[in-house]
Amino acid sequence: MNKLILGRYFPGDSPIHKLDPRAKMIAGIAFIFISFMAKNGQGLILLWLFTFFVMSLTKIGFRVFFRGVRPLIWLILFTVFLQILFTAGGIIYFTWGPIKISEFGLINALFIFSRFVTIIFVTTAVTLTTKPMELTDGLNFLMRPLRFLHVPVDELSIMLSISLRFIPNLLDETQRIMDAQKARGAVFGEGSLFRQMKALVPIFLPLFSGSLNRGEELANVMDVRGYRSELPRSSFRQLTWKIKDTVCILVILLLIAAFAVLNLVID
């Protein structure tokens, strides 16, 4: 449980921390597309350079980022090996039945690995430096156009912020219930897979019932305090767009331009 990095906020006052969440989120999403623009060696180097530049700007230790990759490492390795083993083309180094290790396969695998890891690093940089509440505020703003399609944007974002708000409580409660069941002789993480799954029932059932109760209580409290879903809501936290946010977007545009130029020149 302590290993999960995604969605965790690391307090700090680096330049990245101070950016507007909207700027960070736009930049993060843009980066996902940018990573697909890297089509040659120079592009790949630029991709990595930019990633490490962002990571060092956050002033958070690289180890934290590496931990962020860990839960996805099997997925990454799986795709990488798929590429290596089943892509043909260029010089073929090794053949065994349908399996071919070829030049193109290796190059493709390198690109896919780089895309995966840089995307994870950069998006982790965004989530590590942005408070969950800021993230939902930013998301609310970015989803605003969807209102014209009658998507309940405000409701969705309040649902999201409430869920995020209760994650620490849930962790706390999980720990408490685990302790209580351990005190009654329950053992976790031992025996066959089936037994391990069965051992989780005494944790999850109380957790579920507790969450449902809390949800109902919260709904009542919100009602009592005058929450109405159909009315427009003002926000206590106001997002302000500053010059550095514009700079951030400009840097991203510059990066796009650089990739475009690289692709044109080398082709």
Binding site: E173, R176, I177, D179, A180, Q181, A183, R184, I203, P206
Partner: peptide, 12 residues
């Protein structure tokens, strides 16, 4: 035997 605070939350 350990009885935690609000032990009813451990019923399952």
């Amino acid at each position: 035997g350990m009885v935690f605070q609000f032990p009813e939350s451990q019923l399952f």
